[in-house]
Each structure stands twice: as C-alpha cells, then as structure tokens.
C-alpha cells in the first residue's frame, strides 16, 4: 500500500487546464522531486494537493486505519498530516525568527493555547540544524531571502508532518545552502519516517537527492525516473522533453560519492 497517493488530479482556472489528470504514488521515507519548465503547473499541482486550490481527483494518505482522503479533512487535521513551503512566504509583519518557527506548533495546539517550554527549546534546536543558530530574537524581515527560506524550512520541521510539500525551496538559496537544505530534508525524512514531494528548479539537485523524479510538462507527467537505478541515456531521453538536448554524466566527488551532472547541449537550429 502506498504512503501517499494522487489519483486523476485535475486543476483549472479561468477556463484553462493547468494540471491535467495526474496520478502518482509516494512510498514512506521517499523524496519525490518534480522537474518542469516555468509555467508547467508544478506550483498549481502542489497547491491542489494542499487543498489550497479546488480540484478534481483525489489525494489520499496512509494512516493507521487505512487511506484517508485529504480533501475531507479540516484545516487543522490536514496541517497535522501535511506541511507546505511556498516559493516565498507571505509574512510581511515584524516578527521574531523564533515566533515564525513556533507557528509550526499550531496544528498541535488549541486555539487559545500557547507553545510550551519544550516547543521553544525544540524550535531553537531546529534553528541550529537549519543553520540559523542564535537568530531566535532577530526580526524575520531583516533576514536575507535565503535565510528566510531556511527559517520557513525550520517551521516546517517544527510542524513534524508526515508529508512535506515544498515549492522550489532552493530558488533563493546560494549553492552551498541549496545542498544544505536538501541534506536536512533527506535526514529529516529518514528520522521522522515521513515523505516529501518537492518541486525543484535545479536539475542537479533533483538528480542527486531525489529517490524518484516526476517530469512535468503542460500540466501532465511526461516521464518518471529513478536516478539511482535508471541509466544516464534513458534519463537523458526523458529530460530532453522538458529541457531540450541535454547530456548526463556521472562524476565522482573527492569523497568518492558519485554525482550526476547535466549539461545543456546546443539546440539544433
């Protein structure tokens, strides 16, 4: 039985289909990446899973008593199961970094309850993990865009949901923090026995960190890859559908780990 399953998901607005009849399944502990050109429907797809956008089709998640339909859950019940990182958080007020991370406790708290001491300590620990130690009292608005994204990742980890949905979380991070973020994500999936679906802009990250990749084009899944198993030639063929001519190469880094590198080949004119 799959841990998380999407069946025939279709989303459209303004008379235009953005996501068309998408189905896939995710196993427990799996990091599933979504690759696609700008405007291919990745963000709309993630928002539909979160129930932020109305849609047709069904999203189900494994719970002790069987599969639960996400569409039937209240906001609080959904937030206990799923967390979501948007491309940019809409926080526009002066607020401390610690308070942003503690927002992740909300699904576990009653409407009048406040985060307790343990939650505050856990929030500080998570801030250390994501690379923002000692920034608890700093104004969130004074952080760089990359630091803001790490802070939102900390909030997501605080939420401790079983399914993490991330929309291009690396878009405003520099090279070093991009890899750092994906390392944290993988580690947290292993520790928390949760799964993640992450839309990525950077194919190198997707190829080296994701267990499974879904290739999106015009609101449909046009290919599926397992980078650790599939041959570079097979993956090249699939990736060409969204990036045009590319070549894939396996290189060993200085620690002896193999990394996949994608090179853009010249387009035939």
């Amino acid at each position: 039985m799959s841990y998380f399953k999407v069946t025939d998901l279709t989303v459209g607005y303004g008379g235009k289909m953005i996501v068309n009849d998408v189905s896939f399944a995710v196993e427990r502990g799996e990091l599933t990446g979504i690759l696609g050109a700008n405007g291919s429907g990745k963000t709309t797809f993630l928002k539909a899973i979160c129930n932020i956008l109305p849609h047709e089709g069904m999203c189900e998640m494994h719970k002790a008593q069987g599969m639960t339909k996400l569409e039937s859950l209240s906001a609080k019940e959904l937030a206990r199961l799923c967390s979501y990182i948007p491309q940019r958080s809409g926080i526009s007020i002066d607020i401390s970094v610690l308070d942003v991370v503690l927002m992740g406790c909300n699904p576990k708290l009653g409407i009048l309850e406040r985060p307790n001491k343990e939650m505050r300590e856990r929030a500080s620990e998570i801030l250390k993990i994501v690379g923002l130690p000692g920034k608890e009292e700093m104004n969130y608005q004074f952080l760089s865009e990359g630091q803001k994204q790490l802070c939102i990742l900390a909030r997501t980890l605080m939420q401790d949901a079983k399914l993490l949905l991330l929309d291009e979380p690396e878009s405003s991070l520099d090279l070093r923090y991009r890899y750092h973020m994906l390392e944290i994500l993988r580690k947290s999936l292993k520790e928390g026995e949760s799964s993640a679906v992450v839309a990525l802009h950077d194919p190198a990250l997707a190829l080296n960190y994701c267990d499974r990749l879904l290739l999106f084009s015009e609101g449909r899944i046009v290919g599926e890859m397992i980078p650790a198993k599939d041959s570079p030639e097979e993956m090249e063929r699939k990736l060409m559908q969204i990036y045009g001519p590319v070549s894939l190469h396996r290189y060993e880094d200085r620690a002896g780990h193999t990394q996949l590198v994608m090179i853009k080949e010249p387009e035939e004119l």
């Binding site: 959904l78 979501y84 948007p86 809409g90 007020i93 308070d99 939420q159």
Partner: peptide
Amino acid sequence: ILLSMEEGEARMLG
C-alpha cells in the same frame, strides 16, 4: 499573527 500570512499558507498551518 497566523492570519498575517497569505490564506493558503495559514491554512497549511491549521
């Protein structure tokens, strides 16, 4: 404070 975010983001925090 939670309402200071966009509606979708706030909803995903319950």
